Computed example of a mutant assay.
Amino acid sequence: MIDEAITDSNWIDAMQEKLNQFITNLVWDIVPRPSHQSIMATRWVCIYKLNEDGTVVRNKAMLVVQGFRQEEGIDYDETYAPIARLEAIRMFLAYASYKNFKFYQIDVKRAF
């Protein structure tokens, strides 16, 4: 898969977008490596986001640390992103309306 990703402009754009998000959100600082610590290895996880009919909507790339602590069959092939369930949003809106709360919606591409 990585051979395809490093030659396909769609995958390169997806990886660059992720790196730009890291820079924009100040995710990391470059510091000297302590002599008694090893460097954590990383790898790219590349997935296709599909439509209901199975067509590719976009390429998504994530840079992850190779921790080797995942267990096959539990979380080995999965990556997760926190999302709000529709029921939770409806309950929040009903409660906010009942209490006359003022609330605002903003859209962010990635929240840290």
Results as ranks from 00 to 15, higher is better:
residue 2 I to L: 08
residue 3 D to S: 07
residue 3 D to A: 07
residue 3 D to P: 03
residue 4 E to H: 11
residue 6 I to V: 14
residue 8 D to F: 00
residue 9 S to Y: 01
residue 10 N to H: 08
residue 11 W to Y: 02
residue 12 I to R: 15
residue 12 I to T: 02
residue 13 D to S: 13
residue 13 D to A: 14
residue 13 D to G: 07
residue 15 M to L: 09
residue 15 M to A: 10
residue 19 L to I: 11
residue 19 L to Q: 15
residue 20 N to G: 05
residue 21 Q to C: 11
residue 21 Q to V: 14
residue 22 F to I: 05
residue 22 F to Q: 14
residue 23 I to G: 04
residue 23 I to S: 13
residue 23 I to Y: 07
residue 23 I to D: 15
residue 25 N to L: 14
residue 26 L to E: 12
residue 26 L to G: 11
residue 27 V to R: 06
residue 27 V to H: 12
residue 27 V to Q: 07
residue 27 V to T: 15
residue 28 W to Q: 03
residue 29 D to T: 09
residue 29 D to I: 08
residue 29 D to Y: 00
residue 31 V to H: 01
residue 34 P to N: 02
residue 34 P to A: 08
residue 35 S to M: 04
residue 37 Q to E: 13
residue 37 Q to N: 05
residue 37 Q to F: 03
residue 38 S to F: 02
residue 39 I to G: 01
residue 40 M to T: 09
residue 41 A to K: 15
residue 42 T to P: 00
residue 42 T to L: 02
residue 43 R to H: 12
residue 43 R to G: 04
residue 43 R to Y: 07
residue 45 V to Q: 04
residue 45 V to W: 00
residue 45 V to L: 08
residue 48 Y to M: 08
residue 49 K to F: 00
residue 49 K to R: 07
residue 52 E to R: 10
residue 52 E to C: 06
residue 52 E to Y: 08
residue 55 T to P: 00
residue 59 N to W: 09
residue 59 N to C: 12
residue 60 K to D: 02
residue 60 K to V: 07
residue 61 A to W: 00
residue 61 A to G: 01
residue 63 L to T: 02
residue 65 V to M: 13
residue 65 V to K: 06
residue 67 G to H: 02
residue 67 G to I: 00
residue 67 G to L: 04
residue 68 F to V: 01
residue 68 F to Q: 12
residue 69 R to A: 12
residue 70 Q to Y: 09
residue 70 Q to V: 03
residue 72 E to S: 06
residue 72 E to G: 02
residue 73 G to C: 01
residue 74 I to C: 00
residue 75 D to T: 07
residue 75 D to A: 09
residue 75 D to K: 04
residue 75 D to H: 02
residue 76 Y to D: 15
residue 77 D to G: 07
residue 78 E to Y: 08
residue 78 E to A: 10
residue 79 T to D: 13
residue 80 Y to I: 03
residue 81 A to M: 06
residue 81 A to Q: 06
residue 81 A to W: 03
residue 82 P to W: 07
residue 83 I to F: 10
residue 83 I to A: 13
residue 84 A to Y: 13
residue 84 A to P: 00
residue 86 L to W: 10
residue 86 L to K: 10
residue 87 E to W: 01
residue 87 E to M: 04
residue 88 A to I: 01
residue 88 A to C: 06
residue 89 I to D: 01
residue 89 I to R: 03
residue 90 R to V: 06
residue 91 M to C: 10
residue 91 M to L: 14
residue 93 L to T: 13
residue 93 L to S: 06
residue 93 L to D: 03
residue 94 A to H: 06
residue 95 Y to H: 07
residue 96 A to C: 09
residue 96 A to L: 02
residue 97 S to F: 00
residue 97 S to M: 02
residue 97 S to W: 00
residue 98 Y to A: 08
residue 99 K to C: 10
residue 100 N to Q: 14
residue 100 N to V: 09
residue 101 F to E: 11
residue 102 K to W: 05
residue 102 K to Q: 12
residue 104 Y to I: 06
residue 104 Y to A: 03
residue 105 Q to L: 15
residue 105 Q to E: 05
residue 106 I to H: 05
residue 106 I to Q: 08
residue 106 I to A: 14
residue 107 D to P: 00
residue 110 R to Y: 10
residue 111 A to C: 14
residue 112 F to Y: 15
